[in-house]
């Protein structure tokens, strides 16, 4: 019971942090039978992650068009954890196996604006998008730091 309370308060801390500090919208809690704890998903104010290969495709497309392509934010998964927790690779694998690459609601968002022709850079928002989760690590002083965790080999960004 205590652990349930702990998870609930953990989710609440992260939810509040995302909503009020990072201005996320459409935040939802996601529970499923296969998952050991509830996940969150929501829409950040600006795009959080661009895969390096996607970046190349975007630059190519921008060159062809001769104008910048506005990058709409994507709906992202969030996994709340406490910094003192210990996770095994098996647990991470279970979480990734329990989710789809695109959170619920993300697919519709893409479909509404996806009436244009198939472009390489656009595929990264759909079929080419890999599974990724924003790891929200909560500290005792309720500081939350965010890390991307990717399923599989994902090359680092050119930052």
């Amino acid at each position: 019971m205590a652990s349930q309370d702990h998870l609930a308060s953990l989710c609440k801390v992260v939810l509040n942090n995302l909503e009020y500090q990072h201005d996320w919208t459409q935040l939802q809690q996601h529970t499923r039978a296969g998952l050991s704890r509830p996940l969150l998903y929501g829409l950040p104010p600006k795009r959080l992650y661009v895969h390096p290969d996607e970046q190349i495709d975007i630059i190519k497309a921008e060159k062809d068009r001769g104008e910048r392509i506005p990058q709409e934010p994507e709906v992202e998964w969030v996994l709340p954890v406490h910094l003192s927790e210990k996770w095994s690779p098996a647990q991470f694998a279970a979480v990734f196996d329990g989710i789809e690459a695109i959170p619920p609601g993300g697919a519709e968002q893409e479909a509404s604006e996806g009436e244009e022709r198939e472009e390489q850079w656009r595929l990264w928002r759909g079929p080419k998008r890999g599974k990724r989760i924003l790891l929200a690590t909560v500290q005792d002083d309720s500081t939350v730091t965010y890390y991307w965790i990717f399923d599989g080999l994902v090359k680092p960004r050119q930052n």
Binding site: P44, L48, Y49, F92, L134, L135, Y146, W148, G152, R157
Partner: peptide
Amino acid sequence: VRVFCIEWAGM
């Protein structure tokens, strides 16, 4: 073999 990659999210 399952592998996972971690990067700072920048936020």
